[in-house]
Computed example of a mutant assay.
Amino acid sequence: MKSTAEMLGYGPNERVLIINADDFGLCHSSNKGIQKLLTDGVVSSATIMMPCGWAREAGVWSASHALLDVGVHFTFTSEWDLMKWGPVYRGGSTESLVNMEGYFHRDSKTFERRADAEQVRLELIAQVEMALQMGVNVTHADNHMGSLYGLQTGRDFLSEVFDVCAGFGLPFRLPRFLLLESGAPAPPELAAQALKVAAEADRKGVVVLDYLVALPFQAAPNETYAQFKAQMIALLKQLKPGVSELIIHPALVTDELSAFHGEPLKRGMEMDIFRDKEVQDVLQSEGIKQIGWKELRHYQRRISRP
């Protein structure tokens, strides 16, 4: 079986990395931080949470920076107490997607249990179309909090995701080869399930990743930047051959962010980590090639032509 990296023309032993800044559009602090990382070439790409209040700022800015890789962060959960959002679809009912206040459910488990698949499909389309209407040159799609993967109850919405991504010609964040948080390969049963889902994406013409990696989203007790950096360097050195995406959630640490976000200091660390010279030196010394999602989108659209 060829890896995604080999499909793109890379060698079987080459390590190719996409660094994606999630949660673009969440708030002004996230936007300003991610804009800087994108324009400085520190991250490869970002994805916009279209239902959020600051999505328009992110979208309009992205439309004026069309050469940068910006995608849609499919959002179906609203996890914070003081900052909430709900569906962007306005053409019919979204009742199964929201709570009594009209906001998305707080967690993925509730979403998986209650969501109607057709309402999910329409909301997926609406989020992509909203970005396109703003002029965003949408390069890819991924998923906020993993709500569409069925990780909590086993009820996933990936068939709907693949259909929508195929329709718009967008690759999607999904690992072909599953890794545990330790970096070790997943048990055979889970690994086989990941390959099965990736095969469905292949059949529908949607390009996916080889690997998906990240450090824990929540800070450890009394975690220091030095500890975080050591973990990131170790993760980079352990990357396997193929296309890996590494997820971060950078933001400027401001009063705005601290007012609602449970991990503002960790977001600040993620803002700094790939601007760190030691980390950049590791990327270079390890021979890790950085690419953007546009390369995957170009391949997907090329092979899907009749």
Rank of each mutant, 00 (worst) to 15 (best):
Q119I: 03
P306R: 14
T75Y: 08
S258M: 02
W54E: 14
G9S: 08
W54K: 08
L178Q: 13
S258Q: 10
Q152L: 13
V253P: 00
R15S: 07
F104T: 09
L215C: 05
D81M: 12
V243N: 05
V128Q: 01
R267D: 02
L236I: 03
S182E: 07
S44L: 09
L252C: 09
L283P: 01
R176K: 15
P12I: 01
A58E: 07
I291R: 08
Q238N: 14
F76C: 09
E270F: 03
P221C: 07
N31D: 01
L252V: 07
S3Y: 06
G287R: 11
L174C: 10
D40Y: 01
G242E: 04
I288F: 04
V197E: 08
D202G: 02
E256W: 03
Y149P: 08
V161G: 02
H298Q: 15
Y149H: 15
E6R: 06
A58W: 10
T224N: 06
E112A: 07
L236R: 04
R15P: 04
M1W: 02
H65L: 10
Q127H: 09
E118D: 12
C52S: 14
P250K: 08
D69L: 02
D23I: 04
F177I: 12
G86P: 14
G292Q: 06
R297N: 00
M1R: 13
W61P: 13
H65F: 09
E245G: 05
D81F: 14
Q280E: 11
P306C: 05
G292M: 01
D69R: 02
G146P: 12
V98Q: 13
A166E: 03
P187W: 09
G154L: 09
V60R: 13
V206T: 06
D276C: 12
K32M: 12
W54Q: 11
A198F: 00
C52R: 04
S78G: 12
Y103W: 14
D281A: 15
D272N: 12
S3N: 13
G205A: 08
G41I: 03
V161F: 06
A199Y: 04
